[in-house]
Amino acid sequence: MGSEGPMVYGCLYCPISYKKTLSTLEFADSKTLKEEKREELFESLKVDEKIGWAVDVIDPRVLSAKMLQKNKINLNEISHESAMGLVKRVLDIGYLLTEVYVDTVGDADKYRNKLTERFPSIKFVVAKKADSLYPVVSGASIVAKVTRDRALQNWNFDETAENMHRNFGSGYPGDPNTKDWLENHKHAVFGFPSLVRFSWGTCESYFKGGVQVLWEADESDDDDGCSRKTVKRQSKLSNLGFTGMKRKSEDIESSGKGRCKFFQSRKLEQLTLF
């Protein structure tokens, strides 16, 4: 999973009788293959009439938004949903799936139970490193990887800042090119372009030198690796020099506290001195 670009889930399907042939097609874990070899294998499986494939491309903006929304959805959940979406899509085309091999995300047993519950008629094999164990999963990982690489290279930036370039490298955080790209595309206020998944890593190391931004959704939320003090979302009026009536130091947002309901529900506060 990269820190930049879309997340792509891929699947490959074929008749059970084709299983043996599949294992002779040199499919291997896509990460161990050279880019050219991956491209070559992708082209060959595309023309193989016995093989079908599908991908689910999840936009990095959607990923960031889901992981940072008030009810945060974690990456495991997103990937489980994506995989189940692919299974459903293949079933809907009209293929009768009997065995499905899945590379696990999170706990394999729990994941298998979740899948079996949703699709009781299918036998699921969920395993760690399934892409190096089962040729059908290796093939799926090739499909996903090639699709992701292409999506990244053809990415259209939303942002129109000057000096933006596309040498993102692989988009994986360990890649020096990716590191450089991130460093060069950081803005103190806006952070990274929307191609980057903002939820990646801990926010501390991630935003060194960046301007702090406080969100209501993050209040008293300690389970995402970022220790935050209790914060209120609005700029502190008292810091700006406003002095309201009977203001306590913790009342930092205009609240209409102590006033009648009409004002409270509209967050209208009276400013006597300013």
Partner: peptide
Amino acid sequence: SPVSQYFKPKSTGIEVDGLNVKEANFRGRK
């Protein structure tokens, strides 16, 4: 700050209470 270069609101076509809803991203949030 260069707001117009980074903050790119898009119209969604959704209307709520007669208000036209726009969408934008800021620091990964929708």
